[in-house]
């Protein structure tokens, strides 16, 4: 009885603590900015009934939502836990394959296929994490990169049709929802939920442990931390969220194939977006993904070839790493916060 009472009380404390936290957060600068963005994004699909707007402009945001989850997931294993991972496309692509195959071959409903794809990706994350237990730094980078390359090759050179689907991959997948506006909101809510989870991980004690491994693995081990276990957890979390992004991506394009879902370009996208936003910040990925999607949109609109677009981004990335190693978000927030304080006369 007493135990129950105590736990009830502590839950109550926790809830009111959360409420306090929420109110101060909303009043804080980044809180108000977030709320502002959330409101804009909630009304965005209704600004115009124009067909081009609904079926061309709105899906750009769908990409933004998917990419933001994807880039942030990379940031968990690499930005937080310091595990140089250049094989992010493995989780992204294979989750698409798992979900796609389930839908096409077995007629599994999309939402179940999504869940299984995410579980599958998490397991693959566990497997890819195993080399990271022994290999470090640039060598791990190479191993993950080569691994993604091998998987791409194997799938691309296989026979078409099940089980590996060959160069054409799987096509004819159903849209998440035929209505782009509903698809928009499904992904919007997914993004919010994923970010709440990922930010809580980053701020939690688990986040502290992952960062300690990044900063000094031997020191972490000497502090009594089972670094192997936590490195695997980092890879699994990374794979879980990038798997979700991957199956969403596949369903959005209604197809999954080696070139589109498993190429190294996909891995580099995650890295570019996370680095643009600021590595190790998680929420920086939001800014990085937004920046990427809209600059890409503009560059393609003015008629640049996709390869040229990628070169432009590589150059931007180099500039960011050289001149703004914190990424774009932190300096941007500092500037805006100054402005905010001036406006409020603080």
């Amino acid at each position: 009885m007493e135990v129950k009472m105590i736990s009830k009380k502590s839950i109550k404390n926790k809830v009111s603590g959360t409420q306090n936290y929420l109110t101060t957060w909303i009043k804080s600068f980044s809180g108000s900015l977030t709320i502002f963005c959330l409101i804009i994004l909630s009304f965005l699909p209704f600004f115009s009934q124009d067909r081009a707007y609904v079926s061309y402009f709105i899906p750009q945001f769908t990409f933004f939502f998917i990419y933001a989850i994807f880039a942030a997931s990379w940031d968990i294993a690499t930005g937080l836990a310091g595990q140089a991972n250049f094989g992010q496309s493995i989780f992204f692509g294979l989750a698409g394959y798992i979900g796609g195959a389930l839908i096409i071959e077995m007629g599994v409903p999309s939402w179940i296929a999504i869940i299984i794809a995410v579980i599958g990706a998490t397991f693959i994350g566990f497997l890819v994490g195993i080399p990271a237990l022994k290999i470090k730094g640039p060598y791990l980078m190479l191993v993950t990169l080569v691994l993604s390359f091998i998987i791409l090759r194997v799938l691309a050179t296989s026979h078409s049709g099940p089980p590996l689907y060959g160069y054409e991959g799987i096509s004819g997948l159903p849209k998440l929802n035929p209505n782009p506006i509903i698809e928009y909101f499904i992904l919007f809510i997914s993004l919010i939920v994923c970010f709440i989870i990922m930010m809580s991980i980053s701020k939690s004690k688990l986040g502290t442990i992952l960062r300690s491994i990044r900063d000094d693995e031997i020191g972490s081990e000497a502090s009594g931390i089972n670094t192997m276990k936590y490195k695997l957890i980092a890879f699994m979390l990374c794979a879980l969220f990038s798997g979700l992004a991957g199956i969403y991506f596949g369903l959005h394009y209604q197809t999954v194939n080696p070139a589109g879902n498993l190429s190294m370009t996909i891995s580099f996208l995650a890295i570019i977006m996370a680095a643009l936003g600021g590595i190790g910040t998680i929420r920086g990925s939001l800014v990085g993904a937004f920046f990427y999607v809209f600059l890409e949109f503009v560059l393609v609109e003015i008629g640049l070839d996709m390869d040229v677009v990628h070169i432009v981004f590589s150059i931007i990335l180099l500039l960011v790493i050289r001149f703004a190693s914190r990424g774009l978000l932190a300096p941007l927030l500092d500037r805006l916060r100054d402005l905010w304080d001036v406006l409020l006369g603080r």
Partner: peptide, 13 residues
């Protein structure tokens, strides 16, 4: 030390 963690977190690990 864990160079990007606060002293509190350095000890908390």
């Amino acid at each position: 030390s864990f160079k990007f963690l606060s002293l509190l977190d350095n000890v908390q690990v």
